[in-house]
Design a binder for these strands. Sequence first.
DNA 1: TATATTTGCAACCGAATAGTTTCATAAATT
DNA 2: AATTTATGAAACTATTCGGTTGCAAATATA
Lengths: 106, 106
Amino acid sequence: MRRDVFQAIADPTRRAILVLIAARAMTPNAIAEHFDTSRQSISKHLRLLTECELVSQEQAGREIYYQLNASKMKEIDVWLEQFRKIWESRFNALDQVLYNMKKNKK
Amino acid sequence: MRRDVFQAIADPTRRAILVLIAARAMTPNAIAEHFDTSRQSISKHLRLLTECELVSQEQAGREIYYQLNASKMKEIDVWLEQFRKIWESRFNALDQVLYNMKKNKK
DNA sequence: TATATTTGCAACCGAATAGTTTCATAAATT
DNA sequence: AATTTATGAAACTATTCGGTTGCAAATATA
């Protein structure tokens, strides 16, 4: 099974979990209440997120609080960095389209 | 079939394609030469990337040049934005761990 | 101590995914 | 006109994925 951050954020439920626990650490049960799926399926998502280090656990009695490891998100940001200079320039594909539309109006 | 940018960049071959054509537009054949897979499989990746608008085509005779639509990458950046303030603060998970380690040494 | 609660894990299922092989189409070359 | 080249699409396959159901372990509560 592939276990990298890119694979992890591909699933919309996992992205929602990350946003949810960004505010504060939560237990699997509490997280599952926010979704239309079973607790066990959330548990599986949390395992994957843990394995790729996007979240970490903290045990409190029989409860386990899952918290976001935001610094791991930097990996995505680092990969995006190489494209940032392109989309910030005036010569990316979209700008080119808009430029051509404008030109054709004249 | 899901066709969003997050799904698109989940596959390592597709990420490599995006990096490859970021420098300059390329034909499917030229792209395929850089990988250990068939031309047809690259063609399928290009179709998916086209459908989610991460790349666009430009026909030149019987050749088709695929070019990156970098501005579409912004969608990932926008989603990442909400976490940026967290990982830039001193209170993300990793900093907390380091803080605790330091504290316990005393 | 008996019971309830919180959680993870394994087995299973249907759908999606990435790849291959084969074929059709269109443009360039001979 | 016949052949070669560049490409996309369809059919098929093995693997992965997301979900469910059922169960076991550990902690809290009665």
